[in-house]
């Protein structure tokens, strides 16, 4: 059972990593326009030279 000493922190760390990514994606506005995101995937973005 002593392996849990390592496993639990690892599990928590990975979870927190995911949570961190989620918080980042919210803060950078990725959930503000879900409809648009669904359509933007169809765009050919070669000619967007400035971004």
């Amino acid at each position: 059972m002593s392996v849990l000493i390592y496993l639990i922190p690892i599990a928590l760390f990975l979870g927190l990593l995911g949570l961190g990514a989620f918080v980042w994606s919210i803060k950078s506005g990725q959930y503000d326009d879900l409809e648009g995101a669904a359509r933007r995937i169809l765009l050919d973005d070669d000619d967007d030279n400035k971004n």
């Binding site: 503000d32 326009d33 879900l34 409809e35 648009g36 359509r39 933007r40 400035k50 971004n51």
Partner: peptide, 10 residues
């Protein structure tokens, strides 16, 4: 123009 972004939903 530095950035232009269209929010499709709104």
């Amino acid at each position: 123009i530095r950035d232009a972004r269209l929010n499709y939903s709104t």
